[in-house]
Write a protein that binds this DNA or RNA. Sequence first.
DNA 1: CGCATTGTTGCGTGTTGAGCAACAAGCGTG
DNA 2: CACGCTTGTTGCTCAACACGCAACAATGCG
Lengths: 208, 208
Amino acid sequence: MSDAAPAPEELGLRERKKILTRETIASAAFELAQEHGLDDVTVSDIAERAFVSPRTVSNYFHSKEAAIVAADENEPMEMLAGFEDRPHDEPALQSLRTVLAGSVRSWSDEHAQRLRAKEQLIDRAPALLPHRMAQYDELEDAIRHAVAKRTGVDPETDAFSRLIAGAASAAVKTAVRMWMNSDAGPDALAALVEQSFDELESGLHHDA
Amino acid sequence: MSDAAPAPEELGLRERKKILTRETIASAAFELAQEHGLDDVTVSDIAERAFVSPRTVSNYFHSKEAAIVAADENEPMEMLAGFEDRPHDEPALQSLRTVLAGSVRSWSDEHAQRLRAKEQLIDRAPALLPHRMAQYDELEDAIRHAVAKRTGVDPETDAFSRLIAGAASAAVKTAVRMWMNSDAGPDALAALVEQSFDELESGLHHDA
DNA sequence: CGCATTGTTGCGTGTTGAGCAACAAGCGTG
DNA sequence: CACGCTTGTTGCTCAACACGCAACAATGCG
């Protein structure tokens, strides 16, 4: 579950199949919701398009909403890849700025476009919002653990890692919200992320 | 019944009754979940304890989870009462610090205790987490609109109000998480809120 | 004091989430 | 390479749920 440092990422066939199934279900759910609207999609519909049984859909997600929101989502751990390699004397906020902006910038145009569409769908179907918020919470958790690990503190009891994780997550969220109604690509999103981090670094004084 | 309802305004009887019903249902839901665990509570149980029909529970909340999380919740607008009265030349972050910390400090010990219990319950029942995150999002929205209103910008397109709202919300969340496993009162929570805002103001440099 | 408005309730229905047991598809070991 | 162990998938079943609808009751207003 929580890959520490070891590199052995040779996944068995089983694991890969599971991941593929999960992605297929999520994509099917998202596409259907986009086509017919959230209320006119059932788990049976999703199952059918994903070539699995309805029961299997339930095995992967507690609800169709969770499945929809999971589509094309970036693993928080992937978003933070490279954080450990940053110089440890660099301020954490700056490391996060570099890594997160870089991660966003590496997205393909297609991936970015799907994420934009997903954000727009969530705005149209408010029932999805809690689940998206939970995803930001996962990102926040990943950041928090990464920061705590670097500074050698307990992620549960350390206030600073919590706060910086929340702030960094808010920076990403802000950038996404600003970007989602434009027609710009990943580069523009990355620039917005950097801009948000700049304001955080300067203590959120309005002139930024 | 069990709650000292904060509905002091001169609302019609109808409005007050609705608010009371909502609070009664939410409290019933929370108490039952605390007593028996989330999975062993049905909407019928909740309805029974709240002296309403199951159908009415559905009228107020889309799910029992939403009802549970709504218990003893502070209206975001109330949390921000007084923000408009702060001097307009004061940095927004400082105004928020004062208002939010003050709001938290004014809570009764009982209210604080119930909120703590709710946080603990949410940790035990992860299915509640998305809904709590959505509540933080509501707080964030309220902050965003308040800040945008003061500076006269469009809350939808202005990046700064989004970011500061997210950061302030993260400050509150951080404080609550740090506080929830202690046995301290509202004053201690308020102090933690102020501490988080201090770190935000100083640009999140670790020495804070 | 009626009439319009609006909250509450019961009913019916399509959907959901999950436990269970059977089956099949990886996987490890000898 | 074949056997058994582990684990993902499926169909079945059922309690619970969300919600539209229409009747009813309480409130608010003129």
